[in-house]
Design a protein around this nucleic acid. Structure first.
Lengths: 239, 239
DNA sequence: GCAAAAGTGTTATTCTTACACCCATGA
DNA sequence: TCATGGGTGTAAGAATAACACTTTTGC
């Protein structure tokens, strides 16, 4: 065990969500995990992360981990929780500050799938190292909760998207069907999305309008823990 | 500055809220601050807190700080945020994990008001050490936001209370009047409170019913980050 | 009786939800 | 023309909000 007066180690980990296209009609919510190569929990899967560099901001550390694991930039990034139970890591006191992030599904397709990095279905994880199962469950709860009152869903999508695609994000994450007509009206009234004027062709039905996320605020009453180096890394919303 | 490979220091601080009875009719939202006795920021006011002890849980550390500062036990305690900007503490890298807490107003009256601890109105603080003004603002935002959808208001009150007292908590924190009739119906329908059968006498009007907080769950869909040593220290609600 | 707050009733309005139905396109 | 979602209309029901009114106490 740790000697009594030793300083706890500080680590930053990230729960990275993506919606990956699938053979079955609906996409799946997936997260990337890395295989540990040393003890404790050698050979078990764990959240990507690592010790905090001496002069690195917390969000930057999460962002870097995300980039190193997936090769992608987060479309949404927010601090989740600090986990500090003295018994959560055998042999050493580790306090983990955990972030959660969204990346666009089409970009994430199969990037960086190596021996040591793999994507798992969020609702069907193996036994993970440390308390990481609990952490993912909490992140999932947070994602679902926040999706209902906030404007983060577009974080799973590209720059433009149809209303059907946006609705599908909600349906997959919340695991329930949503009335298409009501969804359209609610979204349009909220001002969160703006029609681009373009339409998506090539479908075998009426070509749907494409929308873009509305960067203008109306910032839903969120508290902005800025300033940060990049606007992407505030608590609330991304550019 | 810090040498590049030095481990950051970990501290735990707490924003402690109370509603203190006042000469003017309405109570005031106040928080205790401690005067720093050493650099950096010597002689400036700061949030109570300190370095994390080697085998102490994060919430326990917050709870201990609270007890040492106010002599009280928290009626509600929740993690707020981890602040880790590399520049937030001159000369040394400090990551602070901040909790926020509610204590009952009548208990907090004037306890531990010494040379080095004083209670300040939450909306009228002096310039604080570090980034503590930002932290308090965030905690205030969180308190106000959470009060609207959660069942934490009784954390400011004693074991039993009148509906008028509970409503006053909402009115003072949210800074707007609330319809007494609608408030009564909403609260009673929610099942959050239960009449004790007792009435409060000694007023110069009709004696109001006393209520007690309903410990039974209906746990508003909160995620319980337990187990902890004491139920008080979960993320959601207290016993 | 009067003041003051407790407690109840009632209605207008807004928000939510369900679902019917027409529209535009590819095949 | 048919199948398939895109997109619009509408009405019932629930939740919210505003406010009038009755009740019970102390003085």
């Amino acid at each position: 065990m740790t000697s009594p007066d030793e300083q706890p180690t500080l680590a930053v980990s990230t729960v990275i969500f993506t919606l990956q296209p699938n053979d079955s009609a609906t996409p799946e919510l997936r997260i990337p995990l890395v295989k540990r190569i040393r003890n404790p929990f050698a050979n078990q899967w764990a959240l990507p992360g690592g010790p905090l560099a001496a002069s690195e901001d917390l969000a930057d550390s999460a962002s870097r981990t995300l980039r190193e694991t997936t090769g992608l930039e987060p479309r949404y990034l927010e601090q989740l929780y600090a986990f500090g139970d003295p018994a959560r890591s055998p042999g050493e006191r580790v306090v983990s500050i955990v972030y959660w992030a969204l990346v666009a599904g089409d970009e994430a397709a199969q990037v960086f799938d190596s021996e040591n990095v793999a994507w798992f279905r969020a609702d069907d994880l193996p036994q993970l190292a440390f308390d990481h199962n609990l952490i993912v469950d909490y992140a999932l709860w947070r994602l679902r909760t926040k999706l209902e009152y906030s404007r983060i869903a577009h974080g799973f999508l590209g720059d433009t998207f149809t209303l059907a695609a946006l609705r599908e994000v909600y349906e997959v994450i919340l695991q329930r069907p949503i009335d298409a007509g009501n969804f359209r009206r609610t979204m349009e009234a909220s001002g969160v999305i703006v029609p681009t004027g373009e339409r998506l062709t090539g479908t075998r039905h009426r070509p749907p309008q494409l929308y873009r996320y509305n960067a203008e605020p109306e910032s839903q009453g969120e508290f902005d823990l800025g300033p940060r180096s990049r606007p992407m890394l505030t608590v609330k919303e991304t550019a």
